[in-house]
Design a protein around this nucleic acid. Structure first.
Length: 843
RNA sequence: GGGGGCGUGGCGGAACGGUAGACGCGACGGUCUCAAACACCGUUGAGGGCAACCUCGUGUGGGUUCGACUCCCACCGCCCCCACCA
């Protein structure tokens, strides 16, 4: 290298240098990973440890925000770190490109969603490149591309074949503004997740994926197969909502209808004093037909359908209901109890009918009080008599009373006993209920993957043959929904012939929920442009499961649950060899400013582009991780980012004057024998590398790793300024420490580190092996120990490391400060923790 | 109502039962400058002392321990998820 090149400018200029290194990475395809599946190429799977590092793919809304920066920076740190540790790293990127925002923009502006989306993707790609992420760009996919959604459709058809995708009539959530059906999960407090409009209930024929078939496995596999935050596991468990109970069949008093109920308290069966049906229960019209109560019941049902869900589901709300005039028979005691319709009974949980036990259920109690229905105690707590009146429901434990064969038993024993009795008499059985519902994927919207089904009058719903995929999204003029998908207006698209019988038929016009796309995109990265299959088993089995998945907590339930479901289905169908998609998960906190989420309407957005222009991408990456623990929410500070820029300036100045043609080796312990300052600096460098390695690899604690590097920079700068590193050993120690700084800094701030590494005489830092720590330098010759008297710090002592306990205690007792604290009192106990502290217990 | 989490300087945070406050921000003092900004150097938990040092300090109250920010119990205060789920 010629000397002119090796002299650093005094000032750090991030813009020029970041562009330079990004161009080099591009030109060298530095972050490309094999194998990926390609047409006509037989895959070869390496025998090498791999790390699939994945961040949740962005929705291309136009701009990336600080949350993305944090997410992708974390992933990039892990990817760089593992790469340099010698793992084969797969770090792909794509775009979750179907969905409502692009479509709503289309409705407003008339521009096709495909065009808007393409433009947004180009913009986001540019921003990701400006941030210098080590992405394998050959994998880049967009879920709205034909070559992607073709296989989304193909996957749907595999589920359809297995009966896991089915069309059925159901009461569904309908958003009157977005004019589409929503999954239960997309309804928040009775309002549309996207637009906030109150949701209505409609009876419609819709496509469902039978995720409930997998409820138990989704629950079980969490215990053994994933290393996820406890919080997320808990949220998933609660969402699946397993509860053990019994199914019990009640029969109408005319014997015409059996109505099963689900209960978690079969022990209280003798306390059932009335019976409730959900307003949507299919038997309601039949039960009241021709009866005087019919009009009132019909009116109640109508109102329940109209009442928005937020109202209906408010637990505090006064109970409402209407008597049907009918009775059912309690199978355990033959009692005839009245049947009411009440909207607090939900059609889509359990069976849509319940036995009401007011004595031991708060909701039933409230209902009984409102309508003056009888309350019968069947569980008595300690010291309570069987006929003691009740002021409130008592859902707790106790002894069975007023329950014939169960009397005297405890609640748990009674549950077992009654379940046995029910199944013996064929009146019911122990069963398990789940809160999880089937996944409604039909959307009456344009910008999504068309559901590849043809409706034939003769044959019913028929699969589009695989060789006719993709079912292309037709161009339309008007994207506004009118209660049906805008696609329905494309007559050329809709009119077709039945693949089975050849008669005229009509295509399904609903598109799929975009969560379907994101339930398998991570598999497609392994075969991003493969034309012959969605992916190849050999390759997908090599890379998957994802070793480290990173994303927002807001996806803790839906996306992760759906993706897990998809992978299990694909496993069962023999397409993949693993059953969980994401082995390790990290959920990041959000970035706030002025105490609120950044949003345009609040005017508190800090655009990443502006920060990059002012400080450089490296500074932004560093700061976003330095803000605090990565899992926590963090508050953006304009001053805070300046501090990180100052830090990079300090690193720059540390390297100035140390440029050279070759890296130096670690000085030997011997060479440093008479150079205490140099030795201390080398020790610090080694300790720093050890800490950074642990913080990134084991703890996901990036902010402490950065702090550690800052300490090393401070020490090195100070030692140099004090002139403590004069001789050759001193210079080598400083150089070694500086190399350690640059090497560790690289995973956070790759551009400046690559530049400085080059100036120090190294090459290609992104593939340079992660440094090994020489333990010799971590073992200290002397240590500072704390001396406590009765647990209070009284002195610190510098003593040789490894001194035996007795000698350490003796030294401690020699200290005048310690003697003063002992004050002549008797030492009762001496605690010595090697190389750490001594605690003298006196009294 | 059910579940999960968190309370440490002026602020973000560190300390994985062993010297509380690393690192950074801010503030204060200094150097540079005609001056300011930037930059750099220093000080910075509270109280006391000329000082060496001393006392008090991790939401509150108990407990376990030689020793507790850390583990356990109760309370107070915040945050998140689910919620008429039978």
């Amino acid at each position: 290298m010629n000397p002119a090149d090796s002299t650093l400018p005094e000032r750090y200029d991030p813009q020029a240098l970041e562009a330079k290194w990004q161009a080099i990475w591009d030109a060298e395809e530095a972050f490309r990973a094999e194998p990926i599946s390609r047409d006509g190429v037989a895959p070869t799977v390496p025998d090498r440890p791999k790390a699939y590092v994945l961040e949740m793919l962005p929705y291309p809304s136009g701009e990336i925000h600080m949350g993305h920066v944090k997410n992708y920076t974390m992933g990039d740190v892990v990817a760089h770190f593992r790469r340099r540790q010698g793992w084969l790293v797969f770090h792909p990127m794509g775009y979750d490109a179907f969905g409502l925002p692009a479509e709503n923009a289309a409705i407003k502006t008339g521009r096709p969603p495909a065009e808007v989306t393409r433009q947004n993707i180009a913009r986001i790609r540019e921003q990701l490149r400006t941030l210098g992420f080590s992405i394998d760009w050959q994998t880049e996919i967009a879920t709205c591309d034909e070559e992607f959604y073709r296989w989304t459709q193909w996957l749907f058809l595999r589920m359809f074949e297995k009966g896991l995708a089915e069309r059925r009539e159901a009461a569904v959530n309908w958003c009157p503004v977005d004019q589409t059906v929503l999954a239960n999960e997309q309804v928040i407090d009775g309002a549309c997740e996207r637009c906030g409009t109150e949701v209505e209930i409609r009876q419609l024929s819709q496509w469902f994926l039978r995720i409930t078939d997998y409820a138990q496995r989704l629950l079980d596999d969490m215990d053994t197969l994933v290393d996820w935050p406890e919080r997320v596991l808990t949220m998933q468990r609660n969402w699946i909502g397993r509860s053990e109970g019994a199914r019990v069949t009640f029969t109408t008093d005319d014997g015409a209808h059996d109505i099963p109920v689900f209960t978690t308290r079969p022990d209280t069966l003798f306390g059932a004093t009335f019976f409730l049906l959900a307003p949507e229960h299919p038997l309601v019209p039949q039960l009241v037909a021709g009866r005087p109560e019919a009009a009132a019941v019909t009116e109640y049902v109508r109102q329940a359908a109209r009442a928005d869900i937020a109202d209906r589901s408010a637990a505090e709300r006064t109970k409402t209901g209407v008597f049907t005039g009918r009775h059912v028979v309690n199978p355990v005691n033959g009692e005839h109890i009245p049947v009411w319709v009440a909207d607090y009974v939900l059609m889509d949980y359990g069976t849509g009918a319940i036995m009401a036990v007011p004595a031991h259920d708060e909701r039933d109690f409230a209902f009984a009080r409102t309508f003056d229905l009888p309350i019968r105690r069947v569980v008595a707590a300690e010291g309570v008599s069987p006929d003691e009146p009740m002021e409130t429901a008592e859902p707790g434990d106790g002894t069975m009373v007023n329950s014939q064969i169960l009397d005297g038993m405890g609640v748990d024993a009674a549950k077992t006993a009654i379940a046995a009795w029910l199944s013996e008499h064929k009146l019911g059985e122990a069963t398990i209920g789940y809160r999880l519902r089937d996944w409604l994927i039909s959307r009456q919207r344009y910008w999504g993957a068309p559901i590849p089904i043809i409706h034939c009058d003769g044959c019913g719903p028929v699969a589009v043959p695989d060789d006719q995929l993709p079912v292309r999204l037709p161009e339309v003029d008007d994207y506004a929904p009118k209660g049906m998908s805008p696609i329905a207006a494309a007559e050329d698209f809709v009119a077709t012939i039945c693949p089975t019988c050849g008669k005229p038929a009509r295509r399904e016009t609903d598109t799929m929920d975009t969560f379907v796309d994101s339930s398998w995109y991570f598999l497609r990265y392994t075969a991003p442009h493969l034309g012959t299959a969605a992916f190849e088993r050999e390759v997908v089995d090599y890379w998957l499961p994802v070793d480290q998945y990173i994303g927002g907590i807001e996806h803790a339930i839906l996306h992760l649950l759906y993706a897990r479901f998809f992978v299990k289905v694909l496993h069962d169908l023999g397409y993949v060899g693993f059953i969980e998609p994401f082995a390790r998960l990290f959920t990041q906190g959000m970035i706030y400013r002025d105490g609120a989420k950044m949003s345009k309407s609040k005017g508190n957005v800090v655009p990443p582009d502006e920060i990059i222009a002012r400080f450089g991408a490296d500074t932004l990456r560093l700061y976003i991780l330095f803000m605090g623990p990565a899992a926590d929410d963090a508050e953006w500070s304009d001053h805070g980012i300046e501090g990180q820029r100052r830090f990079l300036d300090r690193v720059w100045r540390l390297v100035v004057g140390q440029e050279g043609d070759a890296l130096v080796d670690r000085p030997s312990l011997d060479a440093l024998r008479d150079e205490p300052a140099a030795l201390a600096l080398v020790r610090k460098a080694e300790a720093t590398t050890a800490k950074v390695t642990d913080d990134i690899g084991e703890r996901f604690s990036f902010h402490t790793a950065i702090s550690a590097i800052q300490e090393l920079v401070n020490d090195a700068t100070k030692a140099r300024a004090e002139g403590a590193l004069q001789g050759p050993a001193g210079a080598q120690a400083l150089r070694f420490a500086t190399q350690a700084v640059v090497s560790a800094l690289f995973v956070f701030a790759p551009h400046i580190a690559s530049e400085l590494w080059d100036r120090l005489g190294g090459e290609r830092l992104w593939v340079a092996p992660w440094p090994e720590v020489d333990q010799v330098f971590l073992a200290r010759e002397s240590v500072t120990i704390a001396v406590q008297v009765n647990g209070k710090l009284r002195d610190t002592l510098e003593i040789p490391a490894g001194l035996d306990d007795g000698a350490v205690a003796a030294r401690a007792k020699e200290s005048p400060k310690v003697q003063a604290a002992i004050d002549g009192k008797q030492i009762r106990r001496e605690i010595v923790i090697a190389d750490r502290l001594v605690n003298l217990v006196v009294g």
